[in-house]
């Protein structure tokens, strides 16, 4: 008995002290690439959210150019009516970075919520249902009556309903988010989205996209562990955003990063015209660097002359190296067509 106890305890202690002895290597070595381009081999698993192509539940590529114009109809007086349905939930566990699972609170099952898009002067109706276990609301930035503000009109959990109804305006890009206190918590878990109001006269034809700057404090220590453009850290590194040279690119940038007072945006290879909040048709700046405080947003317009890979990222390098960075891949559309022609014939 005593001998058995001794052997077992020695074996256990031995395992604790010299675990390497007990480790048996896998057969097939895996390979990954470092920031400096070195190729490293391992017999174990690769932990690389940056360069290895990873698929997670949420698809930032789809979100990028996905605009919800609502169910459109015309009222008797000629006003366009746009109707949307938004359902809030707060029990979903989502893989927000490869291998990291986080309790996201969602509008229509996703973070960020759907991008609501209307034209200035349209009547917007949002049928909101709260299927969560907590109280939620939707608070739109922009013009609306006080009782449509989503502050005092708390929508109860387990199926509470409310219809937000207002005339879309002013033209620009706005956030919407839950405004139940503690707001930081409700936003931090993912209850936000983009609300675009197009000017009546329209904007110039362009390749349009949304970059929602967000962050996640996955261990609740008051500091964000991950930052991203469109939720998934480093996503546009391994899935570069494809754009055409000599074509106007319009990016709607909204900063919903909580906990950190500011965030910023930096573009490589060219400069952009910047329209703060998108409310004025005349750009305020021609720059490659814009600072955003919490919920600050704007519209960027630029184009690339040359093909290639151009980075965009937070110039707060901490944010960029924790996920908020990506790449535009500019390709020559005319050349591509020519190639296609030559190839086909």
């Amino acid at each position: 008995m005593a001998i058995v106890v001794a052997i077992v305890s020695f074996g256990f202690v031995g395992y604790l002290v010299f675990p390497d002895v007990y480790i048996t290597a896998q057969e097939q070595p895996e390979v990954f690439v470092t920031h400096t381009g070195a190729v490293v081999q391992t017999t174990g698993d690769v932990l690389d959210p940056v360069y290895t192509i990873q698929e997670v539940e949420f698809d930032p590529e789809k979100y990028l150019r996905d605009f919800d114009y609502g169910k459109v109809s015309q009222l008797e007086d000629g006003t366009i009516l746009r109707e949307y349905t938004i359902i809030a939930e707060d029990d979903k566990i989502m893989e927000i970075a490869p291998g990291i699972f986080y309790n996201v609170w969602t509008f229509n099952g996703q973070v960020p919520g759907p991008t609501i898009r209307a034209t200035e002067g349209d009547l917007v109706k949002i049928y909101f249902t709260n299927n969560g276990s907590k109280e939620h609301t939707i608070h739109f930035h922009g013009n609306h009556p006080a009782e449509m503000d989503g502050i005092f009109e708390i929508v109860g959990s387990g199926g509470g309903q409310f219809t937000y109804e207002f005339i879309a305006g002013p033209a620009g890009v706005h956030p919407y988010h839950c405004h139940v206190m503690p707001v930081e918590e409700h936003i931090g878990h993912g209850l936000y989205g983009v609300f675009i109001v197009d000017p009546k006269e329209g904007r110039q034809q362009a390749d349009e996209m949304i970059l929602m700057l967000n962050g996640f404090d996955t261990d609740f220590d008051g500091e964000n562990n991950l930052y991203a453009a469109n939720t998934i850290p480093f996503y546009y590194h391994h899935h570069p955003i494809q754009v055409n040279t000599n074509e106007l690119i319009r990016v709607y940038v909204v900063n919903m990063v909580g906990l950190d007072p500011i965030n910023n945006f930096h573009l490589h290879g060219t400069l952009y015209k910047y329209y703060p909040t998108g409310t004025d048709m005349v750009p305020s700046e021609f720059t490659d660097m814009t600072t955003f405080s919490q919920s600050e947003r704007g519209i960027l317009e630029f184009e690339y002359q040359d093909t290639g890979r151009y980075m965009f990222h937070a110039h707060l390098t901490e944010f960029s190296e924790k996920g908020w960075s990506g790449v535009f891949y500019a390709k020559d559309s005319s050349q591509l067509n020519m190639e296609g022609y030559a190839y086909g014939s």
Binding site: H35, G44, D45, P49, T52, A97, G323
Partner: peptide, 16 residues
């Protein structure tokens, strides 16, 4: 699932 140095995320490997 993730490794960092000075709170900056780096590609890494874990063995076994």
């Amino acid at each position: 699932v993730m490794a960092d140095i000075n709170d900056r995320i780096y590609p890494a490997a874990i063995e076994p």
